[in-house]
Each structure stands twice: as C-alpha cells, then as structure tokens.
Design a protein around this nucleic acid. Structure first.
Lengths: 105, 105
DNA sequence: CCGCCATATGCGTGATCACTTATATGAATA
DNA sequence: TATTCATATAAGTGATCACGCATATGGCGG
C-alpha cells in the first residue's frame, strides 16, 4: 500500500512531470543524452526556457548533466522512468471519463 | 518508447496527481470507497475543498462516484493506480539529488 | 587578455491554481 | 411543503508557475 507519509515528495515529482514541455524533454532524453542546444531545436522552446526546465529536473535528480567540451549533455539517470511513463500512459487510456461533453454540438 | 503525441493528456493526469491533498485522497480511497464526509474527516480539508478536488478527479476518470442513500461514495476505478503510485514512489527513492545544500550550515 | 559560443541565472509579468465564503441542489423526514 | 443533512457549484483572492528579456558565467580560439 502507498505510504501516505511520502505523498509530499511524490507530489513534487508529479508536479515536475505535469508540465508538457518538461515531459517532452524527458521523453526526448529517453533515446539518448542530448545537449541543451539539441533540446532547444527539438522542442522549439527558447534556450532560456529549456535551461529553466532543466534546472528543475536536475535539482530533482530526474536528469543528470554531463559536460562534454563546451556543451552540457543531459541524460536520464536510468531507463526506469521511461517504463513508468509508459505504464502510466497505457493506464490512462483505460480510463473512462464520465459524460462531460458540454462543448459537443 | 513513449508516444510523445500523448504527452498532453499524460501531463494532465500528472497535474492532478501533483497536488498533495488530491494524492492523499486517492491514497485513502485505495483501501475502500469513501463518502465525501469521510474524506473530509480523514484529510481535515474543508468540504468545499474536497468536493472541488473530487470534481477534478471525477472528470478525469480517476475516481468514480457511487450514490448510496444520501451519501456519495467515491472509489478508484481499479487498483492499477495504486500499483503505479507505489512503483513511482519506490523509484523516486532511488534518485540521487545533486548538491543543493544551500541552507546547510 | 578579448571575443565568441554554449549554457545558466535574475527579474518582471500574465496565467493558472488551490482554497475560502456564500449559495444551490437533492434526498429523506416530519 | 418546510426542514435538515450531504454534497455540489460559483465568485473572489492570494500564491505559484511558465515564460520572455536582459545579463552573467565559463570554456575555447585568436
């Protein structure tokens, strides 16, 4: 059973994952380590914004920086996160939402 | 691999899970269905606030309401969510945070 | 040392969100 | 039908957050 005492730290992780751009960054990192510039290109976000998100992810330990010459490559600490994300994604597709088709015309 | 096209909907789920009180509510529901009043007692939140959170969770399909007399009981649609949460929690404990002991004396 | 490149940080701002104070719905009872 | 209990909704507010702009750091070539 879930340890409710750990709800706080768990919710902080989920908060990091709740931002679509951050999730895209992590998703892209799954394949291989990427430099900041590479992430900027791939996501279309500003360099400032990417660095901002990377800082949050880094401080939480969700990504790990690797200096290579003048570049900083960011990597996932392990592949487990990708499995968890995939499990979550698969599960969300099984969810049945109640009728809330207010916009349906 | 993660389907990046589904990042949006996945992030919305994580946003719901990123609120500590919502996570506590879900955590409590894992054991058994609970009435709104019961959740209010257990969490110490206001009834208004609990109803507010339950609405978000309900609209996303994360909880399911069951009318029983004058009460409304909320249940998890399945136990899979608890497994996923537990997996996530276990994984977060393996994360190594970088030095960020700015407050350390 | 100076300038250039890659990346990081600080401030300001508009948007989003959690929560509160009233109020509404809906069932059960008298 | 009026009252009471359980729950839901609405509007307002303070806090948090994502992002842009400007600027700082740090390595490398000249």
């Amino acid at each position: 059973m879930i340890d409710c005492g750990g709800v706080k730290s768990l919710s902080e992780i989920f908060k990091l994952l709740s931002e679509p751009n951050r999730l895209r960054i992590l998703c892209g990192l799954g394949l291989e380590c990427q430099s900041v510039g590479s992430i900027v290109e791939e996501t279309g976000l500003s360099q400032t914004n990417v660095s901002f998100h990377l800082r949050l992810l880094r401080e939480a330990g969700l990504v790990r920086p690797e200096k290579r010459g003048p570049f900083v490559y960011y990597c996932l600490p392990n592949q487990k996160l990708l499995e968890l994300l995939e499990d979550f994604r698969a599960w969300t597709e099984t969810l049945e939402r109640p009728d809330q088709c207010k916009e349906a015309g």
